[in-house]
Nucleic acid binder design. Structure first.
Ligand SMILES: NC(=O)c1ccc[n+]([C@@H]2O[C@H](COP(=O)([O-])OP(=O)(O)OC[C@H]3O[C@@H](n4cnc5c(N)ncnc54)[C@H](O)[C@@H]3O)[C@@H](O)[C@H]2O)c1
Ligand SMILES: NC(=O)c1ccc[n+]([C@@H]2O[C@H](COP(=O)([O-])OP(=O)(O)OC[C@H]3O[C@@H](n4cnc5c(N)ncnc54)[C@H](O)[C@@H]3O)[C@@H](O)[C@H]2O)c1
Lengths: 235, 235
DNA sequence: TATTTATCGATATCAAAATATCGATAAATA
DNA sequence: TATTTATCGATATTTTGATATCGATAAATA
């Protein structure tokens, strides 16, 4: 066995196995990666070069063991008493969770929610770029919202033919959700970020992720009840 | 042992133990409850009285065993070959996840996201009522957005003194998030629904739930990558 | 230079969640 | 009325995720 077990993996080895690492990644880990990134960005902008798992864990209120296990997927080797190289971690995480550099998005439905997302800077920071918006309402077509052009939904394929689009965001009424999803699939979109409360039926090669604010509120409600029960018992 | 093991629990027994049931509820189960509700509401509006776990599972693309286990928490007893009573299930789930009938919410920050939430009907359906909005921008104060009045943040306690408010929604810039959260806690709010990417520090008796769109996008990205890897291998 | 200590990472344990198995049952059907 | 069958719910198994333990190590300190 190797005597120096600490740094016996080369950078190339870890890169080579990136596909299998991707397979091993678990959902909770993936969810935490953007949180790590935000902490790392902050520290980096403060001029720091290294960070310990304890520091990250404290910032995010999670267990340092969890942090170390998650970070292991990046292939970055931490140093005792020093921690991890911040730039390497940032790079490693971005490699794992980003499709490739910048991801192009089309937004369908420039209504209440759509407008909010068009104005949300948080997506760009993480490498997502909303290329354009689409709406069926002719009053909206031709206008600009937060510097993004609103097109007629019929013009969508014109754009997907020119620009490589990966994700379509559905911010439209429920009753047209399935129809529109099918249309997006035909236009060659690879993934759908679904804000409607419809269970979409799409071919296997298309990835769907649905948001559900009601689920969040349910969790909040139950936690709140538990908290007040606890409080009541203490008194 | 009882011979008729099928319906040997009375309604009152299940009600009496509701507090301990609450304790046993797991997060994934809570998350699924609103989804069950939507399916049940739909079926109910179609005039149906009973539904099987298989039917619900199919609608939501989950396992029927999971559905049965989740529904067991409501105390509703299903009948072989018939399924569960839809009205009883609706009632049972609502009992478990709602604080008490209607939950009052205050929204802080009537910007892009705040406006969208003010116009979102989905919350009311699930028993949540946004009572009013608050903003520091005097141009917004005094206006009405989606029939909700926008107040100056300083007027917040006036309202919390009159109406029982349980939840505050934070849709404000990050740099004022902690300050505002602390203010909400002082005003007696029990829970914070946090849309900023700040880890809030609040007293133990206050419940926080944070949304993170970047986490969702990370999951979407990774799933998309996996899907295309899979596709590539098949070819 | 020797010792101390913060930190990592491997391995082990514990807890939670998903999935499988199967007998019980009551409605439907023969 | 007897048989078949859809469905439930209890229990068991497997998988996943969180947490604990601890030796290895290299920087800091004595
Ligand atoms: N508003 C929120 O905060 C919020 C939050 C979570 C989820 N949602 C969900 O997002 C969806 C949109 O909500 P909203 O509040 O923005 O509604 P909205 O009515 O304000 O916006 C819907 C937009 O979609 C457009 N549209 C309708 N049919 C279309 C079609 N076939 N093709 C393209 N565009 C079309 C409309 O013209 C409109 O501009 C809904 O399904 C809602 O449940 C909204
Ligand atoms: N826009 C989105 O789709 C979106 C999505 C997810 C999360 N978020 C987060 O939600 C928050 C708000 O985003 P936004 O896009 O709506 O920003 P925004 O700038 O459009 O809105 C912020 C609003 O908060 C008000 N405000 C500022 N300081 C305040 C204070 N001290 N008290 C009360 N009100 C105050 C501002 O006047 C403004 O109206 C941000 O933290 C953002 O990261 C936004």
């Amino acid at each position: 066995m190797e005597t120096n077990s600490w740094a016996n993996k080369t950078f190339n080895e870890t890169k080579a196995s990136s596909e299998s690492l991707l397979k091993e990644l678990r959902l909770p880990t993936i969810r935490r990666f953007p949180k790590y990134l935000r902490v790392l960005w902050d520290l980096s902008s403060l001029g720091r070069d290294f960070v310990s798992s304890d520091k990250i864990a404290n910032e995010l209120n999670i267990d340092p063991i969890t942090v170390r296990k998650d970070l292991a997927f990046t292939g970055v080797i931490g140093k005792p008493r020093i921690g991890y190289s911040i730039p390497l971690l940032i790079n490693g995480i971005e490699q794992l969770i980003q499709s490739n550099g910048q991801t192009n998005i089309l937004l369908i439905g420039a209504g209440n929610l759509g407008r909010a997302l068009l104005g949300y800077g948080g997506l760009e920071k993480h490498g997502y770029n909303i290329v354009a918006a689409f709406d069926s309402d002719l009053n909206k077509v031709g206008t600009t919202i937060h510097n993004k052009q609103v097109y007629n939904i019929e013009q969508l394929t014109e754009i997907t033919e020119k620009v490589n689009i990966e994700i379509g965001v559905l911010c439209i009424p429920e009753d047209v959700a399935q129809k529109t999803a099918t249309f997006l699939v035909k236009a060659g979109i690879k993934a759908i970020w679904n804000f409607t409360n419809t269970e979409l039926k799409v071919p296997e090669h298309v990835t769907v992720l649905s948001e559900d604010l009601a689920s969040s509120l349910a969790v909040l409600s139950v936690n709140m009840k538990r908290n007040s029960n606890k409080k009541a018992k203490e008194e």
